[in-house]
Amino acid sequence: MFHLISRVKNQGNPKFFKMISGEEIFNLNIAGLELVEYSPETLLDDGCWFKVSNFLAQPYCINLLKEPFISADYNILPQDKYGKIAYLCSFQNDDFYFQKVTPSTYLKNKKLLRFGDAVTVEEDGDRLFVNGIPDAVYLSETNQLIFRNLATISSMFKGVDTLYKEATHEQVEEFLESDFIELKNDYSAGKVNKPNRKRVALAMDTLASMDDTDQHVIFDYIVEYCEDMIFNTGNKSFEIANDDSLKNLLFGIEQRFFTTPVGEEKRVANSIQRL
């Protein structure tokens, strides 16, 4: 049987309440999806979802998934908590489908046009808009959490955003103070855009695993691919004056540049997946 439960905000215990049973809320053909392990370096194509494997063992896994699901363990959602729903969780064939509830999906006393035999106006009562496609699904059989947008699910799975490494202001400053960077044009940590912050966090990890020889190989590699980049051979540093030049440097550190074997066309990988 299908069961729909909800997590209520600012609630002591219990946190989950039962809403209804017997209705299939979400309809998603999971077999038709292509799943790729989550990586901040990967951009998703249509029909492609991120997965986090061995999800039960992850620190951000919620207790709900760690115990057997028995709908009778959950009290019925009382009326005074309707407006406090944080997210929905639909239990369907042993899988858990999650949808975050946002002010835009919770319609409070809005007028709705209803197209029946004639057009009528409905305006009494609150309504919750259910998206056909859930924000995340926990697949019990394979112990995977699948989702498309990490930012959307981070409020449901506290701590899952640690997967998405975005450098703090201090880390960006530390990175920009590296010997191989020479800042120009008053460019500073405060001006670094969000995608680059993410890349800085990744690049710092990559650099930490490289020795000096590796780093020099990388610098030559960047110079080879990025003709716009100004490299001072004297102090072995790149001039970084804007987000674009920083992006090139970061892509270089991640070795995103490559040449096609046939045609020898120079390319950059906007999104990568490890083979």
């Binding site: 049987m1 069961h3 039962k18 209804i20 049973s21 017997g22 039960l56 998934l65 760690k66 115990e67 057997p68 699901f69 028995i70 709908s71 009778a72 019925i76 042993d94 019990s140 059989e141 112990n143």
Partner: peptide, 15 residues
């Protein structure tokens, strides 16, 4: 009334 069931449940992390 609202429906529930008491069918065998999957033990998380196992089959």
């Amino acid at each position: 009334l609202s429906e529930d069931d008491f069918k065998p449940v999957l033990i998380p992390g196992t089959e």
